[in-house]
């Protein structure tokens, strides 16, 4: 569980996060949505410990990040998995090398044990024949799956995903969403996803936080988001023509 208490973050004069508080529970897919520039990425980087909040606290299963020593922070980082927007796979390593990297760095496992674990997670993300390929030789969807495999190979307690569907076709995007949700349930991970994708909101948004101009504007579930009266949320959710039509049909049907 991650508890966020009133965090603020500024860069020079730009006050990006303005007092965000929330709780992310274990075994749930938590989505952070909002327009570009609303502070989603900065919020995620604060949760990852890449940015230190100017004010407020972030608590990971009872441990306040600001009170941890450098080595404790490093240990905590090893409990985190991250899927970056562009996958951030190491170009110089094969798929297998990328997934094995955290094991090689932080465990004392033998080569055979590491290989078994890599085979297991790659199979889990439905990648069987790509072990020896380089990231440049596989598709965007496969790269995302490798990134997920790398993120879960150390059995993390927390999984962070920054726009995992960007650049993917709708079908592959749904596959990735479902994979993340399955993994979240299977390993009881606290998963936090930054997204713009309304399909993801509908499919896997067990808890959704809507950020606007650095504030937490709204919080709820995927069931509640389509019924909310919050104008900012409604404008965001129904910004695409498709969703406007769906909403129109819904209202007509209800009347």
């Amino acid at each position: 569980m991650i508890e966020v208490e009133n965090i603020h973050k500024s860069f020079g004069d730009a006050h990006v996060l303005k007092g965000i508080s929330t709780v992310f529970e274990d075994g749930k897919t938590n989505l952070v949505i909002g327009q570009s520039g609303s502070g989603k990425t900065v919020f995620l980087k604060c949760l990852l410990g890449l940015f230190e909040p100017d004010e407020g606290q972030i608590c990971y299963n009872g441990q306040f990040y600001s009170e941890l020593s450098t080595s404790e922070r490093r240990d905590l980082r090893q409990e985190m998995g991250m899927v970056f927007q562009g996958s951030a796979l190491f170009d110089s390593m094969t798929v297998e090398g990328n997934v094995m990297f955290p094991l090689d760095m932080f465990t004392n496992q033998t080569k055979a044990e590491m290989q078994d674990r890599v085979d297991f997670v790659l199979e889990r993300v439905n990648l069987i024949d790509a072990h020896k390929k380089y990231p440049s030789e596989i598709s965007g969807g496969m790269q995302k799956r490798v990134a997920i495999a790398r993120a879960i190979v150390m059995n993390p307690k927390y999984l962070f995903c920054d726009e995992p569907n960007s650049g993917l076709d709708p079908k592959t995007a749904i596959l990735i969403d479902n994979l993340i949700q399955e993994i979240t349930k299977e390993y009881n991970i606290t998963t936090i996803i930054n997204t713009h994708d309304m399909n993801s909101v509908m499919e896997i948004g067990e808890k959704i936080i809507f950020l606007k101009d650095g504030f937490k504007e709204w919080e709820g579930t995927n069931k509640e988001i389509f019924k909310t009266d919050n104008e900012a949320v409604t404008n965001f959710v129904y910004s695409s023509e498709l969703f406007k039509k769906v909403r129109q049909m819904y209202i007509e049907e209800r009347n």
């Binding site: 890449l50 980082r77 090893q78 991250m82 970056f84 562009g86 190491f90 170009d91 760095m105």
Partner: peptide, 14 residues
């Protein structure tokens, strides 16, 4: 590596 967030990936891993 910086541009493609590979350095961030290393940092996140600890």
């Amino acid at each position: 590596m910086r541009v493609t967030e590979q350095i961030d990936a290393l940092e996140v891993m600890g």
